[in-house]
Simulated scan of single mutants.
Amino acid sequence: MSKTCTTPHSDTSAARERACWPVRVYRFYRDGFKSMTVGRTLWAIIGIKLIVFFVILRWIFFPDFLSSKGRNDQEKAQYVREQMTGRR
C-alpha cells in the first residue's frame, strides 16, 4: 500500500484501494449515512438528548454562583481566593 493519499473526488476502484486511511474512514461513514433509514431518526434523538444534557441541565444544576458573590471580576477573584486559602 502506498503512502500517498488520493483526493476524495477520484472514485476509481484502484484509487479507492490506494487511498490513505482518513479518506477510507470518511468514505465509509459517508456511504453508511447515505443509506440509513431508521438511523436518521436515532441520530435525531441522540442530538436532542445532547441538547438537553448540555444546555438545559446546565442551567438547572450549574447556576452562576459567583455572580452573587461580587459585582466585578476582582471581587469574585477575592471571594475565590478567600475560600481556597481559608479552608485548610
Score class of each variant (00 low, 15 high):
Met1His: 03
Met1Asp: 00
Met1Ser: 07
Met1Leu: 13
Ser2Phe: 07
Ser2Glu: 06
Ser2Leu: 10
Lys3Gly: 08
Lys3Ala: 05
Thr4Asp: 05
Thr4Lys: 12
Cys5Met: 02
Cys5Ala: 14
Thr6Phe: 13
Thr6Tyr: 10
Thr6Ile: 09
Thr7Asp: 06
Thr7Tyr: 05
Thr7Trp: 05
Pro8Tyr: 01
Pro8Ser: 06
His9Ala: 04
Asp11Ser: 08
Asp11Cys: 07
Asp11Thr: 04
Asp11Asn: 13
Asp11Val: 01
Thr12Asp: 05
Thr12Leu: 02
Ser13Leu: 15
Ser13His: 14
Ala14Met: 08
Ala14Trp: 05
Ala15Tyr: 00
Arg18Asp: 03
Arg18Asn: 09
Arg18Lys: 11
Ala19Trp: 00
Ala19Val: 04
Trp21Met: 15
Trp21Ala: 15
Pro22Ala: 04
Pro22Phe: 00
Pro22Cys: 03
Pro22Gln: 03
Val23Met: 12
Val23Glu: 04
Val23Asp: 04
Arg24Leu: 06
Val25Ser: 11
Val25Gln: 06
Val25Glu: 03
Tyr26Arg: 03
Phe28Glu: 02
Phe28Cys: 14
Arg30Ser: 14
Asp31Glu: 11
Asp31Trp: 00
Gly32Val: 09
Gly32Arg: 02
Gly32Gln: 07
Gly32Ile: 07
Phe33His: 00
Phe33Arg: 00
Lys34Gln: 11
Ser35Tyr: 06
Ser35Arg: 07
Ser35Trp: 05
Met36Arg: 01
Thr37Met: 12
Val38His: 12
Val38Glu: 15
Val38Leu: 13
Arg40Cys: 12
Arg40Asp: 13
Arg40Met: 10
Thr41Gln: 10
Thr41Leu: 13
Leu42Ile: 09
Trp43Ser: 04
Ala44Leu: 09
Ile45Gly: 10
Ile45Thr: 07
Ile46Cys: 10
Gly47Arg: 04
Gly47Gln: 04
Ile48Ala: 10
Lys49Phe: 15
Lys49Ser: 09
Leu50Asn: 12
Val52Met: 10
Val52Ala: 12
Phe53Gln: 07
Phe53Glu: 05
Phe53Ser: 06
Phe54Asn: 14
Phe54Arg: 09
Val55Glu: 02
Val55Ala: 04
Ile56Gln: 05
Ile56Trp: 05
Trp59Cys: 04
Trp59Gly: 10
Trp59Gln: 13
Trp59Ala: 05
Ile60Cys: 08
Ile60Trp: 03
Phe61His: 08
Phe61Ser: 07
Phe62Asn: 13
Phe62Thr: 14
Asp64Phe: 13
Asp64Met: 04
Asp64Ile: 07
Phe65Glu: 13
Phe65Ala: 13
Leu66Val: 10
Ser68Leu: 08
Gly70Thr: 01
Arg71Phe: 00
Asp73Tyr: 15
Asp73Gln: 14
Asp73Met: 13
Gln74Ala: 15
Glu75Pro: 01
Glu75His: 02
Lys76Cys: 01
Lys76Asp: 01
Lys76Ile: 03
Ala77Ser: 14
Ala77Asp: 07
Ala77Met: 11
Gln78Tyr: 12
Tyr79Asp: 02
Tyr79Leu: 02
Tyr79Glu: 02
Val80His: 01
Val80Tyr: 01
Arg81Trp: 11
Glu82His: 02
Glu82Ser: 08
Glu82Cys: 12
Gln83Arg: 09
Gln83Trp: 11
Gln83Ile: 10
Gln83Lys: 09
Met84Phe: 15
Met84Ser: 11
Thr85Ile: 14
Thr85His: 06
Gly86Cys: 02
Gly86Ser: 06
Arg87Cys: 14
Arg87Asn: 14
